[in-house]
Write a protein that binds this DNA or RNA. Structure first.
Length: 850
RNA sequence: GCCGGUGUGGCGGAAUGGUAGACGCAGCGGAUUCAAAAUCCGCCGGGGCAACCCCCCGUGAAGGUUCGAGUCCUUUCACCGGCACCA
């Protein structure tokens, strides 16, 4: 028997699959179709274990579906635009294009040896002009359909580099390279009008039965539908151009607890006041420092400035409230102005305490002790569904839920005409402009006479110029000598190209549709899209739960609206699975100054550095990252153990939705197990043992059971559980005294069930065990239901919920008889006392209440 | 700060409200071997007991619902993901 050696077999079977064209996606009217897609990778240049895990899961699904008679589409591509390519160009002087395509070639070379059943003929990169040209066509159609708009938006501005920064380039409120304090600055930008679809995007979540409920919940909270009141506070102090401040509130029932009105530093009123009042201007400038992220704004210390203006309370003409400008009010949400009710909002309370503004409770709990916020307690913010007792009431009942209070307040305000109930969404329009080079150019030409004019479709794609340099900060498109100078398509006069490129989320919002016809001369081919869409199973990281998935759902709707997808594809992903990360321990020593120094796992052995013998500190597992050096290179693992071991390991130890910790011992164990299967298969193939009726029947029973368990495990994404069952069946086969024929049959089933996870090993042993053709093309085994039924079973007996014995009974024994046997079995524990009650859960358990 | 998730032996983890710890790793004992590697067999949550039986404790912490809770509810702690220009 030859020893198990992956290098000897894996390349050979990959060639055999290629030659047979096993993985070419072919429409077949005789078969149900199945489209399985994993989120495509960013071409960083190296694949990592997270990729291996993600694509292995998709591959298991794809291979299993092929075996169960589906026409399968399983494509791969590259999410190839983005910042890292420009950063690399700045750091080492190359060109983003060269860097990106070289990385793609490297990564493809690292991926192919893993044996994924991918239809590589459909591969594309989003930076291919053939792809982004179609994206420009889509953009123009969306522009025509009224789905695109242009207006001002706030960006991170680095005042030293004079350039826009991405959020990740802002560290502690400062530019990552210049170290200068970042400012929030307004720029005119392009938007997709996703907020027009907010209601539909929210309501349609309900129909996504095969999405994780946590993802649907996160999306629902992100879209954030709220019912509230829009009202205006009339100014009692004159202000130029303003006689009132419109405010939106989701808690109009707390209006009698209002103690101030506050506007965003970006509010028109704040801007107007800044022009006349240097103190206010200075405050607004200060408040605009720091990054644009919601996190930065929410966690910053709350500050404000009293404008000196006063407004009248709508419920009491004699009641005046001060108007503040405050840094925690977002201009993007509602009207950019609020009324503060410190008693029932934590942020307002912090603000009120800091600036000694009044705190007035409007409701208290219905019962129980309650310390009011005005007496020093925390803000009282119960769930809106919870009933509370109103102590400052102007509408509805004294005791009512917050929801009822809100509705009563809205009805009251509408009745008197000083406010109106509105439904608002937290979801903002999708800002798609980026002031960067390495992205899809926005196909628009700006003409002084004609405005923003679409590039004529016959001039697409608008290609990125290649003669650009990255020796300075800022967008090379802006400073390119000739690229931007074009005649206006409308009047022929002098005009300029738009130099903004598209957010890379645009690229990944429709690639799933492009895979159905990747060479089409239009964005999609409707026949192909109608056949292959929707994606039956989408697999990727939980970090994409909100933005990528929401944008893709929006794009699918936009593509339906512009005629690029059939109506049925408006929800592009039928089923979604979010997998966990691959983690690893971190090995750290310290340099002379006590700063941490990280070491790669392969440099460490037995808690010490191989090179110097210095002992390392082991930090618990975290997501693999280059900076912490806790990465394991799949290429090395494949070279040492083979692709099958890597694939088996990433699926075996953890449930797929959870993180998995890569350990050298675990990889070793996976390899040993594959070797064991290898030996058992060879032993079975060489066996001449005569039939052994009892053992043969037992093994056959176990064979049917494992078919049922593994099939169910794969279908429900219980890959780790399926693998545990395969371990169990391997043990059963090893111990079995069955004859040669039964053992060969069992071994053949074993390798076939393993084939989705370890396809190369499976092919080799399939052939050895007399399997016909390629295992990759063999039909999936079926379990005989009759073989799955056990004749007798063990029932545990509890007394007061604690296990005190067990009985073995025929599976269809009458309940009375089970009860009698159960009482007999636990007679000792009952000490002669008659039981109060006996609960028999047929087929499960008996509980005696003593 | 806000939204979402996770927490079970030395470790990764299993368990439709029904025998907690399947399966694997590590460890321990044994077989095989001149020896080792490889392989095979057995044991393996904590405590009590001479001991199989048996008894007590045990699923981050504290309460609750239930005949019965790792699982459901409330509070709380820790860690992870997202927060709109990282992908």
């Amino acid at each position: 028997m030859p020893a198990y050696s992956a290098p000897a077999i894996e390349a050979r079977w990959q060639a055999a699959w290629d030659e047979a064209g096993c993985f070419r996606a072919k429409a077949d009217p005789e078969k149900p179709k199945y489209y399985v897609l994993e989120m495509f990778p960013y071409p960083s240049g190296r694949i990592h274990m997270g990729h291996v895990r993600n694509y292995t899961m998709g591959d298991v699904v794809a291979r299993h579906r092929r075996a169960t008679g589906h026409a399968v589409l399983h494509p791969m591509g590259w999410d190839a635009f983005g910042l890292p390519a420009e950063n690399a160009a700045m750091a080492s002087g190359g060109h983003p294009k060269d860097w990106t395509y070289a990385n793609i070639a490297d990564m493809r070379g690292q991926m192919k040896p893993l044996g994924f059943s991918i239809d590589w003929s459909r591969e594309f990169a989003t930076c291919d002009p053939e792809y982004y040209g179609q994206q420009q066509a889509l953009f123009l159609d969306m522009l025509d359909a009224g789905l695109v708009t242009r207006r001002a938006a706030v960006v991170n501005w680095d005042p030293v580099e004079m350039t826009v920064l991405a959020n990740e380039q802002v560290v502690d409120g400062k530019g990552w390279r210049s170290g200068a304090e970042v400012e929030r600055r307004e720029l005119t930008q392009w938007f997709f009008k996703i907020s027009d679809m907010a209601g539909d995007l929210l309501d349609a979540l309900e129909g996504l039965d095969d999405w994780p409920s946590k993802v649907k919940l996160m999306q629902a909270n992100w879209i954030g539908r709220s019912r509230g009141l829009e009202l205006s506070f009339a100014l009692t102090t004159p202000a130029p151009g303003f006689d009132a401040i419109p405010v939106y509130t989701t808690r109009p029932d707390t209006l009698l607890g209002a103690s101030f009105v506050a506007v965003s530093p970006d509010h028109p009123l704040a801007k107007a006041l800044s022009e006349r009042n240097p103190e206010i201007a200075a405050y607004c400038e200060e408040a605009r420092k720091g990054g644009t992220t919601e996190e930065a704004i929410e966690t910053a210390e709350k500050t404000g400035i009293d404008t000196g203006l006063r407004v009248r309370h709508p419920l009491d003409p004699s009641w005046e409230l001060p108007v503040w400008i405050a840094n925690f009010i977002l201009m993007d949400y509602g009207t950019g102005a609020i009324f503060g009710c410190p008693a029932h909002d934590g942020r307002d309370l912090d603000f009120a305490r800091k600036y000694r503004l009044p705190v007035v409770s409007t409701f208290v709990p219905v019962e129980g002790e309650h310390v009011r916020p005005e007496e020093g307690a925390e803000a009282f913010v119960p769930q809106k569904s919870e009933p509370v007792r109103y102590v400052k009431l102007f509408a509805g009942e004294e005791v009512q839920s917050g929801d009822a209070g809100v509705e009563a307040a809205i009805a009251f305000a509408e009745g008197l005409g000083w406010g109106k109930g509105v439904t608002r969404y937290r979801l903002r329009d999708w800002l798609l402009s980026r002031q960067r080079y390495w992205g899809c150019p926005i196909p628009v030409i700006h003409c002084e006479a004609c405005g923003a004019v679409p590039v004529p479709r016959d001039q697409l794609p608008v290609r990125l110029p290649e003669d650009v340099t990255f020796d300075r900060p800022g967008n090379p498109l802006d400073r390119h000598p000739s690229w931007g100078k074009v005649p206006c398509p409308s009047c022929g006069g002098e005009a300029r190209r738009e130099t903004d490129t598209m957010d890379t989320f645009v690229d990944s919002s429709w690639y799933y549709a492009r895979f159905t016809a990747p060479q089409s001369a239009t964005p999609t081919d409707l026949d192909e899209a109608a056949y292959w869409m929707n994606v039956d199973q989408y697999i990727g990281g939980i970090e994409h739960a909100i933005l990528h998935l929401l944008y893709s759902r929006f794009f699918a709707r936009a593509m339906v609206k512009t005629g690029h997808l059939p109506a049925a594809a408006c929800e592009p992903f039928d089923a979604l699975f979010t997998q966990g990360m691959v983690t690893h321990e971190i090995y750290q020593t310290r340099d002379a100054n006590g700063r941490p120094v990280y070491h790669f796992p392969e440099e460490v052995e037995g808690g010490t550095l191989k090179a110097t013998g210095e002992s390392v500190e082991v930090i618990p597992s975290a997501k693999m990252s280059k900076s912490k050096k806790n990465v394991v290179d799949p290429v090395g693992i494949v070279a040492t153990y083979g692709a099958d071991t890597a694939r088996w390991f990433v699926l075996s130890d953890s449930p797929p939705e959870r993180d998995v910790e890569w350990t050298a011992a675990g990889a070793e164990a996976a390899f040993r197990h594959l070797g064991r299967v290898w030996r058992l298969a060879h032993e079975a193939a060489a066996s001449e043992a005569p039939a052994n009726p009892a053992a043969d029947a037992a093994l056959e029973r176990a064979r049917h059971k494992v078919i049922a368990e593994v099939s169910g495990g794969i279908e429900s994404f219980g890959f780790n559980a399926a693998i545990a069952k395969l371990y169990g069946f391997t043990n059963a086969l090893a111990k079995s005294e069955a004859g040669a024929e039964a053992k060969v049959r069992a071994a053949r089933t074993l390798v076939q069930l393993m084939a989705p996870m370890t396809p190369h090993l499976a092919e080799e042993l399939w052939t050895l065990l007399g399997g016909v053709g390629l295992c990759a093309q063999a039909p999936w085994p079926k379990a005989d239901p009759a073989m799955l039924i056990e004749d007798s079973m063990t029932l545990p007996i509890q007394v007061n919920g604690k296990r005190r014995g067990e009985i073995s009974v025929p599976r269809d024994l009458a309940v009375q008889e089970i009860e009698r046997l159960a009482l007999e079995a636990v007679a000792k524990s009952l000490e002669g006392a008659p039981p109060k009650k006996v609960i028999v859960v047929p087929g499960r358990i008996v509980n005696v209440v003593a």
